[in-house]
Design a protein around this nucleic acid. Structure first.
Lengths: 338, 338
DNA sequence: TGACACGCTCGAAACGTTTAGAATAGGCTG
DNA sequence: CAGCCTATTCTAAACGTTTCGAGCGTGTCA
């Protein structure tokens, strides 16, 4: 900028004025300066600008697992909206691990991001402390945290799983296995609550040994399903609390020599683009990823531009049960009792 | 930092010295300063530091499509390695669009990233100009660009597709449809070249109307496949040049009332975690995503620490043909000729 | 005892912006 | 013609670091 100023024989203040349009400049000088900028190929230094202004026009985005198509879909739309608004996004993932999460958040805050969009791995004290200390505009996505009172956009997880479970119950299934996500997350807890609620509505007892923790990962879900299927009284249906885990569930079913839906019915949280083209066509709960991303981005943008209300806004969206062919009436499940 | 200095009644220079260990400080002062840091809860401002040092410890990572599992897998490992080395990652995607790409790269350079890892959407002049102007350590992944002479890690695309095509040829297929990616990318061109090479090796003519451009996206692949399957002499097998497109291919096959592999054999670039659990079990070319990510990260890390050789390094990895059940001998394809 | 080296600490400049407020020039008014 | 206002431009401080070189005790050696 100094070079430009020299080349145009003006002060840096004037150069700054034409670049930012922050003060009136005579057409004559403006032209001279603009030409100098061209000639020199000047680009303003965003770091110096950030230092002075105390803003980076960057928002930190942390998801639980960047490998999970649900999150990547959401990330894609958040990015899109934010870029359009002139913000860069710095992406992290916590790998479903609270320690990693704390590290990553620190890293983001360290880089002076202007705001944070987070799908937390869990709500440990450290996270709360860090967030409170940073005092940044924050929006939670997908998962809520007790004690972190910010804007958020989440799904009505309980309702969605309840509906799905009710559907399976309606097909006559009485022993429905449930592969849960980590109960350290609100999604883990809420989804399980939905399962319980459905059982209760059907006046069926909740049986501990029908639910296994799969931690939202394929591998854990695989072993969890193995246990379920080799237990004394094997379930006739299994619900998986997310997309990654249902792969593990299906692998376990295959490895144990059973077939879906002939021997076990399966349904899962999260939809797949290929769900109705590869067999068995999975029955799933589809999340409105587009809306989730858009709303989250809008929430943070509003917060950043200071036009949000003081009190946090909580958006709760609804899932959609996509009934396909991976569940069938229990009467058509010949080997139902092994 | 000034506050800390005051609290410990020392100069900022000394505080800086203990924080960075950049100069000897007496144990006594060190203790006092460290205590002051604790008390005040001081965290050094990375922006100011960047301004002074001219480095941000951030690398820009641009992939073609953040929604593509291949890229997200690679991104995940790059992130992991880079974070471990103390670098943050700023992630963008160009949506397979060169204009978007130029914009995003500008955005990254604007943020003063220290280096760039790029899977380019194409090699337009603007990109070359921007990159040349920025003069940053850069590594290309997945795709090469004519005229951009940097470190790179790519797959031996030609060889991989040639092998896959040869395999289909070996099953007796003579009319193999090919759904290509964009020919503006090196992967698009190289994969097609592999297909041609296999035909040539089998002394079969290359037929223009057996290949259709799908631009690496499901939707385009769908219409491309529709055209292929409704043409006068429909192919008995189809190869898809990536993972997203094969979904489109399968949907087209389904919508047209055919079955894979009974009526059409299918193989595809890029593997899926669920490929051997959902039917038909797809025959694919698996890429060594872990290795790609690790090498790319290492390449940029070496470059950033100045311990790379002057001449660019090109790493070429090999794909692996995962033979499953989506291709069968043409003799078992009853409706081969419609 | 004087010279010198060493170990520690500090002052101040620099990184590249933004911006408040001062300065300047020119025109208008009374 | 003095005084004042307006429009434009400039000077300089500030943002929070890092680092160079200077300064200053102390101890060592001749």
């Amino acid at each position: 900028m100094l070079d430009v100023a020299k080349a145009a024989s003006v002060s840096v203040a004037t150069v700054s004025a034409v670049i930012n349009g922050s003060a009136p400049v005579s057409p004559e000088l403006r032209a001279r300066i603009e030409e100098a900028i061209q000639v020199i190929g000047y680009k303003r230094n965003a770091i110096a600008r950030s230092l002075k202004l105390g803003t980076t026009r960057t928002v930190g985005l942390m998801v639980a697992d960047i490998t999970n198509p649900f999150f990547t879909d959401v990330v894609a739309v958040i990015q899109d909206v934010l870029h359009r608004a002139g913000y860069a996004v710095m992406l992290c993932c916590n790998d479903e691990d609270v320690e990693m999460q704390d590290e990553q958040i620190e890293l983001l805050i360290d880089r002076s991001v202007d705001g944070l969009i987070i799908a937390p791995a869990g709500d440990d004290e450290t996270l709360k402390r860090i967030l409170a200390g940073a005092n940044l505009p924050t929006v939670l996505i997908d998962r809520l945290c007790d004690g972190i009172d910010t804007d958020a956009v989440v799904l009505d997880n309980r309702r969605a799983v309840q509906d799905a479970t009710l559907y399976m119950l309606g097909l006559g299934h009485r022993r429905i296995g449930y592969i849960s996500g980590s109960l350290d997350t609100s999604t883990g807890r809420e989804r399980l609550a939905g399962y319980k609620a459905a059982l209760e509505a059907a006046k069926l007892p909740y049986e501990d040994d029908l639910v296994r923790i799969g931690n939202f990962r394929e591998k854990d879900a695989y072993t969890a399903t193995m246990q379920l299927l080799t237990s004394a009284e094997r379930p006739t249906a299994i619900f998986s609390a997310n997309n990654l885990m249902v792969i593990g569930v299906m692998k376990a079913i295959r490895d144990i020599g059973l077939k879906c839906p002939e021997d076990v019915s399966v349904a899962s949280f999260d939809d797949f683009p290929w769900a109705d083209v590869f067999q068995p066509h999975l029955t799933t709960i589809a999340q409105p990823v587009q809306a989730i991303g858009e709303q989250a981005a809008q929430l943070i943008l509003d917060r950043l531009s200071g036009k949000s209300p003081e009190t946090p806004r909580r958006l709760v969206l609804q899932g959609r049960l996509m009934i396909r062919e991976s569940c069938r009436p229990v009467s058509l499940t010949p080997r139902a009792i092994a």
